[in-house]
Design a protein around this nucleic acid. Sequence first.
DNA 1: GCAAAAGTGTTACGAATACACCCATGA
DNA 2: TCATGGGTGTATTCGTAACACTTTTGC
Lengths: 235, 235
Amino acid sequence: MNQYDSIERFPVALDGIIFGFDQFTLKLLLIKRDFEPEKGKWSLMGGFLRPDENLDEAASRILKMLTGLKNIYLEQLYGFGDVDRDPVERTISIAYYSLINIQNHDKDLVKKYSARWFPVKELPDLIFDHHKMVEAAKARLRYKAARQPVGFELLPEKFTLPELQQLYEAIYETRLDKRNFRRRILSMGALVNTNEKQKEFSKKGAYLYRFDRETFERQYALTGGSNQIFKPPNK
Amino acid sequence: MNQYDSIERFPVALDGIIFGFDQFTLKLLLIKRDFEPEKGKWSLMGGFLRPDENLDEAASRILKMLTGLKNIYLEQLYGFGDVDRDPVERTISIAYYSLINIQNHDKDLVKKYSARWFPVKELPDLIFDHHKMVEAAKARLRYKAARQPVGFELLPEKFTLPELQQLYEAIYETRLDKRNFRRRILSMGALVNTNEKQKEFSKKGAYLYRFDRETFERQYALTGGSNQIFKPPNK
DNA sequence: GCAAAAGTGTTACGAATACACCCATGA
DNA sequence: TCATGGGTGTATTCGTAACACTTTTGC
């Protein structure tokens, strides 16, 4: 033993808020628990910390279990630890949120875990304090999306400006002016028109763009992050 | 036992980044450890979570141990949990930062813990990952101070505008234009001139102001927090 | 009377907003 | 030919930044 002898130890969980976007709607991936406690109810994907992994690694492992995806955007949100948050045993949970391209995930795994994508505006009841976690994640995403180009994590590599606008409208739950949006987002100088057209959603077709991270870094990394790449409306 | 039988448990620590401001300088309260590990080195004040208290309560208890203060501004920062962050045993630490009025704290307790106030710009080496915690706290404070009136937590109830400006200059590590600063901060409408003068620092004397939280809430609570009360310069 | 800090207004610039019409195409 | 969604430009407003002199008073 050691000099921490007399202190208490707790299970440490990681819970993941997994965002996806499918052309029109911002969604969360939730699992239907087929284990106790709260079997049959909906919850975030989670798991327990192992002794040999850092927190980020554990969150990443758990995310991969459900989606099959590695190296995806993942950020720690907040630590939840109310005494009675888990009825089985006092547990500390560190919530992480992640942004994935909804087309890339492994549908078999989703089936295996009885998981389902829910629109963020139509979530079912969730176990424990998972609703608080979701609210925190939505707020953080709004914050992040204004300052860093995280929105592109949620889109396919090639996307149209109307799609991108839809995504921002979903994140901020508001309508945006088409012209102003395009001007602002293009003024970053980091969106490259591929000159291909996406014609699934309109007769005229919309240009597909690509986010050029290198250009972005060159222009914005230097400014220390004080620039906002997108300014959400004040309501 | 229960169905969490097979999982690992960890000590959960709370570490506190304690900010104070003494007229000219933004400071942190650090303790000199008289216990292992790293005895004799400087560290943040910390302690271990107990089974019967929430995370916020534990952070608050630990802060009170060192300062004697209750009901002070305290906010969770981030969870640190690298495998080897604590050489004694794998420990998860949730960092909290707090803002206190440096005049109100209990100097005897500070002596008892061999604690000392250090200017944030001249910190000693710190144990473990405490430097990372401090950096995160400084960043969060800059974020918060732009959006919520947290600066006043660091000042006495009555303060002068030059003092307030000093504080913002310390937080953002920059010089500010006197006229623009006054206009912006007064435009909140939440600072009340007490018509008393503080003459310690100048012959002319500066008016003492009071922050009127109620007025502030009435004006800003409604806006959903989208307003910035202070916009730090882009450099 | 002078040094030292407190207090005060105006102008110039840039960013955000509001707003309406033409274009390309498939059906 | 018409319905549908994609694409474009300008004028106005508002907020931010830059900037210099007067006031008070203790020494």
